[in-house]
Design a protein around this nucleic acid. Sequence first.
DNA 1: TAGTAATATTGCAATATTACAATAATATAT
DNA 2: ATATATTATTGTAATATTGCAATATTACTA
Lengths: 107, 107
Amino acid sequence: MGASKINIHSQKAIDIAQVAKVFAHPARVAILEYISNHKDCICGDLVDEIGLSQPTISQHLQVINKAGLLKGNFKGKSLCYCINTKRLLQFQTIFNSFFSQTNNNCC
Amino acid sequence: MGASKINIHSQKAIDIAQVAKVFAHPARVAILEYISNHKDCICGDLVDEIGLSQPTISQHLQVINKAGLLKGNFKGKSLCYCINTKRLLQFQTIFNSFFSQTNNNCC
DNA sequence: TAGTAATATTGCAATATTACAATAATATAT
DNA sequence: ATATATTATTGTAATATTGCAATATTACTA
C-alpha cells in the first residue's frame, strides 16, 4: 500500500511526471532562474539568494543535475553551474506535445 | 524542521511549482490524457483504465480540478469531466515563458 | 420515498520529499 | 604538504504525497 504505484503507468506518463517534478518546487524554479540570469556563473551565492541552507541547495541542484539540466565545471573552488540549453529545449518539447495533445474540449 | 519552507520564495516561483505539481504524477498525466481522448466524456472507467482505486482516482481528479483544469457536470450519475482548455493554455503560457526566460547558456 | 449507481470524503498506513546540522570531499593558494 | 574555501554526502526529523478500505454523499429512477 501507500505511495508510488508507478509501475502501472505508461512510460510516457512517467517521463512527463518526472520532468514536471523538477519544476515542482519553488526552490528549484528559483535556482534555475538565478543561474540563467547570471552569465558570470557565480553560483555560490545561491544559498544567500534563496535563503535555504547549503546542503538543501546542493540537494536541489542534484535533482536538477540528474534531470540533465546542468552544464559546467562542477568541482573545486571556481565552479560553474549553467543551464544545459539542449536539455531544457527537450523538456519544453515534451511539455508542449503533451499540452497540444491534451488541449481538447468535449463540453 | 523539515519540509515546506515556501514562504521564502517569490510568488512567481510558487506559481510555476504549483502548476508543475499537477503534472508531477503519472496518474494525473494519464487522467488528463484519457479525458482529452474521450470526447464522449464517459469518464467513469478511469478506475479500470488506470488501475488505481476509485478513491485514489477521485483524489487525483480533485487535484486537477483545484488547479482549474476541469470543466463539465461534476455531480450525479451522468457526470462529465472535460479539460478546461483556457486554463490549460494559461498553464502552457506560464511554462513557456519560464522556459524562454531560463534558456540561457553561459558556459 | 426507496433503491441504485455513481463519485466524494474520511481515516489511516506507507512512501517520498524537504530541510538542516555535522561531516566529508574537492580543488586552489600559500 | 597545509590551510582555506567551496560543494557534496550522511544522518535525522518533520512534512507532504500517495493509496486504499470504509463510509458518506449525490443525483437519477421507478
